[in-house]
């Protein structure tokens, strides 16, 4: 390392602290276990008001009732989307599907709330995916228990 004048700021590489976690998904465990084991999506339904929450929640924020798991097909409709051209550092899913990818607001069939997720445009061209496009999930070979275990593609 070249020597620097005394008054130049001294910069310390600080690499001995890399937080790693064994993170519990708690009440959401059935949702992620279903993805890993069976490549299927579950939603959560409130027995009080009947709303189907996606992303799922263990408790209904409106009624404070404990929700129940219900299967959904995973197919849905793009409500709105943007094409992203920027690489995400250490976002494994984006490395897998490539750029540009579509970051979309998706209305899944049977759900009352929208979900934000990634859509892979078939030939990475603009406007292949747009508002109204029907989409379906594709589950990845390697699944670890995150929502990055799947992504969406146009359904037809």
């Amino acid at each position: 390392m070249e020597s620097k004048p005394r008054q130049a700021p001294f910069e310390l590489p600080f690499t001995d602290w890399k937080p790693e976690y064994l993170y519990s998904l708690g009440e959401l465990s059935p949702f992620f276990r279903e993805i890993v084991d069976n490549q299927r999506l579950l939603a959560s339904r409130c027995p009080g008001c009947g709303k189907v929450w996606m992303p799922p929640r263990g408790d209904c924020p409106d009624c404070y009732e404990t929700t129940e798991w219900v299967p959904i097909s995973g197919e849905g409709r793009v409500v709105s989307c943007t094409y992203c051209y920027f690489p995400g550092a250490n976002v494994d899913l984006i490395a897998h599907i490539g750029l540009p990818y579509v970051f979309a607001v998706i209305e899944l069939d049977g759900a009352d709330t929208y979900m934000f997720h990634a859509v892979k445009p078939p030939s990475q061209k603009m406007n292949e995916v747009r508002s109204g496009t029907r989409v379906k999930p594709v589950f990845r070979e390697k699944r670890t228990g995150t929502i990055g275990d799947f992504y969406f593609v146009p359904a037809d």
Binding site: G88, V91, F103, V105, F116, I147, G148
Partner: peptide, 27 residues
């Protein structure tokens, strides 16, 4: 990235402000 919801956002998007806000701007 851990500033974002680590369960529902982090695995599907990079930590880029433009993208987070695009989810509001485009619609």
């Amino acid at each position: 990235a851990v500033s974002m919801d680590t369960t529902w956002f982090r695995p599907v998007m990079p930590g880029v402000p433009a993208l987070i806000t695009a989810a509001c701007l485009v619609p």
